[in-house]
């Protein structure tokens, strides 16, 4: 194998391993997150304490440019149940259960994440 090929492959494997390790470390604490945040293009739309939810309900989030997402909330769980984006990746994600794996609708700029109560927000880019 040519030298350059090997370097590229090793580099990619390294990035892969580093990202897998970071995910494992960041996601490995046992507390189960219960506070859901819904943001549109980074701006906080709604915060929901999933433990306070008594009955399942749905609500719609619009992003100001014609996009909408329907968020489904039940006791302890939240997911995106419908959207008008072309690929519906956000809907297929299912319930958001881990604080490192949010449900994201990129065409509409909508993100549904869950976090521990009182946890400081460490994962935003500053404007």
């Amino acid at each position: 194998m040519k030298k350059g090929n090997l370097i590229i492959l090793v580099f990619i494997v390294l990035i892969l391993i580093i990202s897998l390790i970071s995910i494992f470390i960041l996601g490995s604490d046992a507390t189960s997150p219960t506070v859901a945040k819904i943001t549109v293009y980074g701006k906080l739309e709604k915060t929901i304490d999933l433990n306070d939810v008594k009955e399942p309900y749905d609500f719609e989030v619009t992003n100001g440019t014609g996009g909408y997402n329907v968020i489904h909330v039940e006791p302890g769980k939240i997911c995106i149940s419908d959207a008008n984006c072309p690929d519906h990746v956000c809907v297929k994600k299912g319930y958001v259960t881990s604080k490192i794996a949010p449900a994201v609708c990129i065409p509409n700029g909508v993100m549904v994440e869950v976090d521990d109560p009182n946890a400081p927000e460490i994962d935003s880019l500053s404007q």
Binding site: G42, A101, P102, M111, E113, D123, L125
Partner: peptide, 8 residues
């Protein structure tokens, strides 16, 4: 979407 979590 203004988050770093997407790198998951």
């Amino acid at each position: 979407v203004d988050t770093l979590k997407i790198y998951y």
